[in-house]
Design a protein around this nucleic acid. Structure first.
Length: 931
DNA sequence: GCGATGGA
DNA sequence: TCCATCGC
């Protein structure tokens, strides 16, 4: 719907704060940031709304109205007014001056009046304009404005989530509020109240009742004149709260006599300051809006012929209507040439083209997400913008294999760079079809991970922010997640082609846009020297998999189950009742209310009793049940997460466990492991060790070789801070935790007790993991003052460490980011936050990120070098697992000496940080004995 | 401190 | 969705 436009006096009044709030929260799940870490959601949303208005409605007069932050007459009337409204988020507050700058650049007048709110100003102006013969459109999502609507005054509600704009005239107000005249909206609001504005209304009266009462009695006054006609609770409530209702009516009424002047000459639409706008958009990095400012180019519309439901059966049950943002380009309004490649001849000509490219982008569509069980459905390729090819594959595996094999040469060509989004997945899929991918790799997901580690890196998001383009949504093809979701096989061919080709085309386009950012952010060396060469290494590790002794685990499961049952009985006896002791919700009241183990028990955010390990560990002496619960929990976790789960993840084809490494999750640069997570296999307690034992070498002719860096993070901290005491300790290969204890507690090394060492060790780790004094006291079960003394003692003795930490924070404040030794960046947007807690987190990250991130850089380099060396020497040994500072291998016995030498050399020599990096290494039949 | 997983 | 627990 478009506003009536046979008028030359069409005034639009925008409620600035309401629109800004709405814009900000519209992006709350997927906030936009520019590279400086500024949250630009509000600016982007507001500008888009404004652009749509200008393009669609062509206003003759226009103004934006702001509230002034001073107590208004409503506060004087009712002090709680708007008190429940949460304080404005910091990001949003920072956005306001930007929005003002944008409005000024558009040459749109800003109106505000101290002591009055935007709705009062807008109401007054609308009425004045009406007298001058204007049609006024009040642009706001706030329904309170309905009371102002008249013949010539309309509400203009911006569209939400792809919906059309709604324009409310008198009929719409009558319909939505079930009133006869718009001013009765005030009476409705007076009765039902408004939580956002903290207008109290009458308790027990919601929208439905309010509408019913007003339609019967026409107004609040009318209602109270006939109050005796009502009865029961409703009447009681209304009588009791009459004063409150009448006050509410005053609060809800928008006043129309604000002392503002209606000067139409100042509100006339003007041409924007294009240059200024361009500057602002550049700074905010609004790429698609910037493009719109460029001189308009004729859009070539390409008509696509979809032949849905003809060749491929009926329509698609899962298909969902697309929800599009209308400020973005998409497949239907963007020229493109996407081709199906279905027969041998077409494939041959595609191969010929691919073979002469310097680089091409490819993507695979499959029947699932697990590379070990999924099948390829098609391959798509792109090497020119807007052009892509989709090679369809037969359902029969043998036939499909033959077709995929045809592309073996181009994929294997060392001289062709391969571009992809999460390319490790595609490499693993092709591996299942005996195709190796060689040549330089370029993964757009990882590129973006290095440019903006904290944000999301999925293709949809990247296309929207960098290309101003909205991809075809996966749900519109396959339907929602769940049972009824289709696989790519069931999607009609033409649709699949459009989707698959779009992926390849856009990934290639994305590469062109994102690539310069690698230089701007200085992460190109990490990208080219670490992350890209690591991809084939990880793919190889994932494909190799690790052997698991399932028989041993099954036997252990039985033992565990028996222990658990016994414990469960004992606990229930002690508690005196049956309950589900895996449920903290049920356990809490039993411990703290029935057994009264602790009279002032800690509670969680959601008002439940906290029954966490650390809480219970402190109460272990109070009641025998506590220890048993802890033991029960530990065993149960072990059983469900590992002993029972792992054997089920053994791959039927290979008989091994294949984890999957994610290279673009952890903001510090570490890898993460899923499906299963092999980076958290128990080690510390006795029970857990059985599980490590089940990870074995591939057979009796092989050994499980485990190598881990000793104290790599503390060594890095010593190197980065150049603290003389630390450096000395490491150069002399001394026990760093004991040395730390001896310094902090001012005792000779020989007199350090195990408790002192333990505390010093925790302090060391505290620094590495960036925990606060609060966290340290919690972890060591000591008071906060003792924790603070510990930390103070630490800094006194390792003053360069303290100095280094302060420097990290300063660097973060000055530049907005910190770096690892290899130039991997982490941005710390909150480093200047006014909120001390938020700022504290950022400060600890500023210290921790260079240390943890550098360790990640180092082990990744070692992995690449070892992998290359093993390959070059044509050794059979295989790298199996990475656990942050540890590498594990499956080594044929006869290769052991050679492999050990390679591993030691490459791990210790990965980089020179100015002090020795040492490793510990061991070979055994299984992981437990090797570690 | 982060990341992954299982259970209610 | 939250809570608890494993690893580094």
């Amino acid at each position: 719907m478009s506003a009536n436009n046979n008028q030359d006096k069409r005034l639009f009044l925008l409620d600035a704060y309401a629109l800004i709030y709405r814009s900000y929260f519209a992006f709350i799940k997927n906030p936009r940031y520019n590279s400086k870490g500024l949250n630009t959601s509000a600016m982007l949303g507001f500008t888009n709304t404004l652009e749509q208005l200008l393009n669609k409605e062509n206003p003759t007069h226009l103004a934006v109205v702001f509230d002034v932050h001073a107590p208004t007459f409503r506060h004087e009337m009712y002090e709680a007014y708007k008190a429940t409204r949460e304080e404005m988020p910091e990001d949003l507050r920072k956005a306001i001056p930007w929005v003002r700058k944008i409005i000024e650049a558009y040459h749109i007048p800003i109106l505000e009046k101290e002591g009055f709110e935007a709705d009062d100003v807008i109401g007054t102006l609308a009425k004045k304009a009406e007298k001058e013969g204007y049609q006024t459109y009040m642009m706001t999502p706030d329904k309170d404005y309905a009371q102002l609507v008249s013949e010539n005054i309309f509400m203009y509600k911006p569209g939400r989530g792809g919906n059309e704009v709604e324009i409310w005239g008198i009929p719409e107000v009558q319909e939505n509020f079930e009133v006869q005249t718009p001013d009765q909206v005030i009476d409705i609001l007076a009765l039902m109240g408004d939580t956002a504005d903290n207008i109290p209304g009458c308790p027990g009266v919601g929208p439905k009742t309010a509408m019913k009462l007003i339609s019967a009695y026409h107004s609040v006054d009318g209602l109270y004149e006939h109050i005796d006609e009502l009865k029961g609770k409703q009447k009681e409530n209304l009588v009791e709260h009459e004063a409150q209702v009448r006050l509410s009516r005053k609060l809800a009424e928008i006043i129309q006599d604000v002392p503002v002047e209606f000067d139409e000459s100042k509100l006339v639409m003007d041409e924007p300051n294009w240059q200024k706008l361009q500057e602002i958009f550049n700074e905010l990095e609004f790429r698609s809006l910037s493009q719109k400012l460029a001189p308009p180019q004729p859009q070539v519309q390409q008509q696509l012929s979809f032949e849905q439901g003809t060749l491929f059966g009926e329509a698609q049950p899962a298909a969902t209507a697309p929800t599009r943002r209308d400020d973005l380009a998409h497949i239907e309004n963007t020229p493109h040439e996407y081709y199906l490649v279905e027969n041998a001849m077409q494939r041959a000509s595609l191969r010929a083209e691919l073979s002469v490219q310097e680089e091409f982008c490819f993507d695979t569509e499959t029947t699932g997400l697990d590379t070990h069980t999924a099948e390829l459905v098609c391959l798509s390729f792109s090497f020119r913008k807007g052009e892509a090819y989709c090679v369809t594959l037969p359902e029969n595996r043998e036939e499909a294999l033959r077709v995929v094999q045809e592309f073996r040469l181009v994929f294997g060509d060392e001289n062709i760079r391969k571009v992809g989004q999460n390319i490790k997945y595609d490499i693993l899929m092709l591996k299942q079809y005996d195709v190796e991918v060689n040549g330089t790799l370029y993964d757009t997901m990882i590129a973006h991970y290095l440019i903006q580690p904290e944000l999301r890196h999925n293709l949809d998001y990247l296309c929207e922010t960098y290309l101003g383009y909205q991809k075809v949504e996966t749900v519109s093809l396959l339907g929602k997640k769940g049972k009824s979701q289709l696989t790519m096989r069931q999607v009609p061919l033409e649709q699949m082609k459009e989707y698959a080709c779009e992926d390849a085309d856009l990934t290639l386009q994305l590469k062109q846009v994102i690539d310069p950012e690698l230089d701007k952010t200085g992460v190109r060396p990490v990208f080219e020297e670490i992350e890209m060469p690591l991809i084939p290494v990880l793919a190889d590790m994932e494909a190799t998999g690790v052997s698991l002794n399932t028989r041993e685990l099954d036997a252990y499961a039985k033992v565990l189950r028996e222990q658990i049952v016994t414990l469960e009985q004992e606990i229930k006896e002690l508690a005196g009742e049956k309950f589900n002791l895996s449920s903290p919700k049920q356990l809490g009241p039993i411990l703290f209310e029935k057994l009264k183990i602790d009279t002032n028990a800690k509670k969680t955010k959601t008002k439940q009793y906290s029954t966490s390990e650390e809480v219970l560990a402190k109460l272990v002496d109070k009641h025998p049940i506590v220890g048993k619960i802890l033991e029960f929990r530990g065993l149960k976790k072990l059983l469900s997460t590992y002993v029972e789960a792992l054997p089920q993840l053994v791959d039927a084809k290979t008989g091994k466990i294949h984890t999957s490494y994610n290279q673009a999750i952890a903001a510090t640069g570490r890898l993460s492991s899923t499906n299963p997570n092999l980076q958290n296999i128990p080690i510390r307690d006795e029970n857990g060790r059985e599980i490590r034992k089940a990870f074995t070498a591939s057979d009796e002719n092989h050994l499980f070789l485990s190598a881990d860096y000793s104290q790599i993070e503390l060594r890095i901290m010593a190197a980065l801070s150049k603290d003389p005491h630390m450096l000395e300790a490491f150069r002399n290969n001394q026990d760093i935790h004991a040395i730390t204890a001896s310094k902090i507690y001012k005792v000779p090394l020989e007199e350090v007790t195990s408790d002192m060492r333990r505390k010093a060790k925790t302090a060391n780790f505290g620094i590495i993991y960036g925990i606060s004094a609060f966290g340290l006291s919690d972890r060591l079960n000591i008071s906060r003052s003792e924790a603070k003394e510990l930390i103070d003692g630490y800094f006194e003795n390792f003053s360069r460490v303290k100095q280094y930490m302060d420097e990290c924070i300063k660097v973060a404040r000055d530049h907005g980011y910190v770096e690892t030794i290899k130039g991997r960046r982490r941005y710390l947007n909150d480093i200047n936050s006014a909120n001390a807690v938020v700022r504290g987190v950022a400060e600890r990250n500023a210290i921790n990120a260079p240390i943890q991130g550098s360790a990640a850089d180092i082990i990744k380099l070692a992995m690449i070098n070892i992998w290359n060396e093993l390959r070059q020497r044509k050794l059979q040994a295989k790298m199996l697992l990475q656990v942050h500072d540890e590498l594990n291998f499956d080594v044929p016995k006869e290769e052991l000496d050679e492999v050990k030498q390679i591993v030691k050399e490459q791990m210790e020599g990965a980089v020179d940080i100015g002090l020795p990096l040492t490793i510990e290494m061991n070979a055994a039949p299984n992981w437990l004995e090797a570690h």
